[in-house]
Simulated assay, not measured.
Amino acid sequence: MGTVEQFGGLPGGIDLVEEDGGPVLRLRGEVDSLVVAAWQASAPAVGRAPVAVDVSAATFLDCRGLRLLVRATETTRRAGRVPELRRPSRTVRRMVEVAGAAPLFATVP
């Protein structure tokens, strides 16, 4: 679907993949404002909102990265479904909790 991966020396990557249950946003490495900006500049228009966010390969998530997760899954929540936050590291989980966004996701260890 769409990918931004280690592009131009960026410390992380984002891609959107289709799985059986629906679109999944995958994050890798350090997802900071530069990575999010690159994703937003090159990502194709998304037909359906992600039903899950796989952060198992993410080592860092800043506030702009968290905002991307919340906004990208907003339509899924409005449809009555709770998006999954898959395998967050301790660092990523802490960012989500401190920001108060944990209730917006069903965390899958």
Rank of each mutant, 00 (worst) to 15 (best):
L68I: 07
R90S: 13
V96K: 04
W39R: 05
G100M: 15
V55S: 00
V55G: 00
G65P: 08
A102W: 09
A101T: 09
V98S: 05
R78K: 07
R77Y: 03
W39L: 12
T59P: 01
A57Y: 03
G47T: 07
R87M: 08
C63Q: 12
G80S: 12
P88T: 14
R77H: 06
R77E: 05
V53K: 00
P88H: 12
T91P: 04
D54L: 03
G47I: 01
S33E: 10
L34K: 02
D62M: 07
E74T: 06
L69A: 09
A101W: 07
V55T: 04
A72H: 03
R90H: 14
R94K: 15
C63R: 14
L85S: 02
D32T: 05
V98M: 13
L85Y: 03
S56C: 08
A37Y: 14
R90W: 14
V55W: 00
P103H: 05
V82Y: 13
L85H: 00
T59E: 13
V35K: 04
S33C: 11
R48P: 02
A43F: 05
P50H: 07
A101V: 10
T59S: 13
A45E: 15
C63I: 15
A57V: 03
A49S: 13
L61S: 00
D62R: 01
E84I: 03
R71V: 15
P103A: 11
E30W: 08
P88K: 10
R86L: 13
A52D: 00
R48S: 14
A72L: 02
R90Q: 15
S33Q: 09
T76N: 01
W39F: 11
M95Q: 05
S56D: 04
A58Q: 00
A58G: 06
G47D: 13
R64W: 04
R78D: 12
P83Q: 12
E74R: 10
A43N: 10
W39H: 05
P88Q: 11
E84T: 06
S56F: 04
T75R: 06
V70M: 13
Q40P: 11
L85P: 00
A57N: 05
V46G: 01
G47K: 05
